[in-house]
Simulated scan of single mutants.
Amino acid sequence: MKIAIGNDHAGVDYKNAIINALQAEGIEVLNCGTNTNDSVDYPDFGHAVAKALEKGEAELGIVICGSGNGIAMTVNKHPQARCAVCWTKELAALARAHNNANVISIPARFTAIEQAVEIVRTFLATDFEGGRHERRVQKI
């Protein structure tokens, strides 16, 4: 599995912790985010993750910004992306199981780094349930 990850300046430490955790589990990660705490524009990194999915360079994506909202809105401008803002493991599981989300957005200012790693693990470990949810996802 290959994951694309993108972040703005609020998410650098989160991204690094998530990359380390995923690589320790043998998951390949494509770093589409900034590596500096200097102020940057989150849309640049949200678009990069969505484009990586569109090109088949990654199967799923993770994006991180201060609130999680702006970067999620950016990703969702791409027709093949279904990005969900998740600040708990339960939301991450539902985003995958019910909405077939292929990108998760983490609000760095509202989660702890350890919590963010667990949110990502849950997201990746959860499968889409299909069934009645498939009909709904097709209407998005």
Rank of each mutant, 00 (worst) to 15 (best):
Lys51Asn: 12
Glu28Thr: 13
Gln115Ile: 10
Gly130Cys: 02
Leu94Val: 15
Gly11Cys: 03
Ala48Gly: 08
Asp38Pro: 03
Ile140Gln: 11
Ile104Ser: 01
Cys65Asp: 14
Ala4Tyr: 08
Cys83Asn: 02
Gly6Val: 15
Lys51Phe: 09
Asn102Asp: 00
His9Pro: 07
Val75Gly: 15
Gln23Arg: 06
Val29Glu: 00
Leu60Cys: 06
Lys89Pro: 13
Thr34Ala: 00
Lys77Asp: 15
Gly56Thr: 12
Ile119Glu: 02
Pro107Gly: 01
Leu60Tyr: 06
Thr34Ser: 04
Ile18Leu: 05
Ala108Val: 04
Ala24Asp: 00
Val103Leu: 03
Asp38Lys: 07
Lys89Gly: 10
Gly70Lys: 13
Ala116Val: 05
Gly6Ser: 11
Gln23Asp: 00
Phe123His: 02
Glu129Asn: 12
Thr34Tyr: 02
Ala72Ser: 08
Lys77Phe: 13
Gly61Glu: 07
Arg132Gln: 10
Gly130Tyr: 05
Thr122Lys: 01
Glu59Phe: 01
Asp13Phe: 07
Asn31Lys: 00
Phe123Leu: 09
Ala84Tyr: 07
Lys51Trp: 11
Cys83Pro: 06
Thr122Met: 08
Thr36Ser: 03
Ala125Asp: 15
Gly70Gln: 13
Gly6Met: 13
Arg96Leu: 11
Asn37Cys: 05
Ile71Gly: 00
Leu60Gly: 07
Lys139Arg: 14
Ala4Gln: 12
Ile62Asn: 07
Ile27Gln: 03
Val85Pro: 04
Thr36His: 02
Ser39Val: 12
Leu53Ala: 01
Arg96Thr: 05
Asp8Val: 09
Ser67Val: 14
Glu129Cys: 09
Ala93Asn: 15
Trp87Leu: 15
Lys77Tyr: 14
Asn31Pro: 06
Asn76Ile: 07
Phe110Asn: 01
Glu134Arg: 01
Gly6Asp: 14
Met1Asn: 02
Asn20Cys: 01
Leu94Tyr: 14
Gly6His: 10
Gln23Thr: 06
Gly130Glu: 05
Gly131Trp: 09
Asn100Phe: 03
Val63Trp: 01
Gly61Thr: 09
Thr126Ala: 04
Ala52Val: 13
Thr36Val: 08
